[in-house]
Computed example of a mutant assay.
Amino acid sequence: MLALIAGMGDLPMALVARLPERPLVCALDGFEPILQTDITFRLEHLGTFLQTLQARGVTQICMAGAVRRPQIDPAAIDAATMPLIPKVQAAMAKGDDGALRVIISLLEEAGFAVVAAHEIAPDLLPEAGVLTQAVPGSDHKTSAMLGDDCIAAMGAADVGQACIMSAGQVLAKEGPDGTDAMLSSLSGAHDAILFKAPKPQQDLRADLPLIGPDTAKRAVEAGLAGIVIEAGGVMVLDLAEVLAALDAHGLFLWVRPKGDA
């Protein structure tokens, strides 16, 4: 049996729609998805939550959707969670990928197999190539090469999975509020590109980068020339809608193999 630990955004609903049977939908308190939730839990009750999943016959867990780090109330930690607290605290002290690696290890130690969102919905990973009517120019290809370097540097600091590149310069880097927030802060970024890719050595079973129609809309509003995503490393929700929005305004979408010129 599969349990989906669902966060905010449209990805959890997209996964449920693709599954032959509805999973057990769980959510961290304060970050409920746009789905009917079967179990809501607090991080202070993680041990009890894992015991509940075991009792319900869960063998696989998928984590999908946006969450932010909750504050831990020491007074609320229950007995089943107390042995896990050193690892939970270690996770909270790390960057995004480091924290997820610790959480994944906790789930595996409890006997669960962790399943990636793109394993449930492989169709969310588009084929490599330029998928729009507009195509990237040579300057955009140069910016994409430099985007690789920017993501590598961000990955070393374990922060962010996207940046805005123009003429060999970094105009913006993704922060804790995500890609759409970064795009919303820009205007008139003509000939710039949104570059998005997973961090080097990222565990792709959780927090795989994602774009969707809102991303396309904000890219248009920011005046970008196009979007470049790493092939096999970035999911696209509602691809047809994304392409229609980009084609309508002359932007390109390049699903680029890593390192491709």
Rank of each mutant, 00 (worst) to 15 (best):
P12N: 08
A14V: 05
V16R: 00
P23S: 03
G30K: 10
G30E: 02
T37C: 11
R42S: 06
L46E: 12
L53D: 04
L53V: 13
L53T: 14
M63L: 13
M63P: 00
V67Q: 11
A75Q: 11
P83I: 00
L84K: 07
I85V: 15
M92Q: 12
A93Q: 09
D97V: 08
D97E: 06
D97W: 03
L106E: 01
A113I: 12
V115M: 06
V115Q: 03
A117L: 02
H118Q: 12
H118P: 05
I120L: 15
P122T: 03
D123T: 09
L125R: 06
G129I: 07
V130Q: 09
P136K: 06
D148F: 02
A152C: 02
G155P: 03
G160K: 03
G160R: 04
Q161M: 08
A162N: 14
I164E: 08
I164N: 08
S166P: 00
A172Q: 15
A172G: 12
E174N: 09
M182F: 03
L183M: 11
S184R: 15
S184C: 09
G188N: 05
H190M: 07
D191Q: 13
I193L: 11
L194A: 01
F195N: 04
K199W: 07
K199E: 04
L204Q: 10
R205W: 05
D207C: 10
T215M: 01
T215R: 03
A216H: 03
R218M: 10
A219P: 10
E221I: 00
G223Y: 03
I229V: 08
M235K: 11
L243I: 13
A244N: 09
A248H: 05
L253Y: 07
W254F: 10
V255W: 06
D260K: 09
A261L: 12
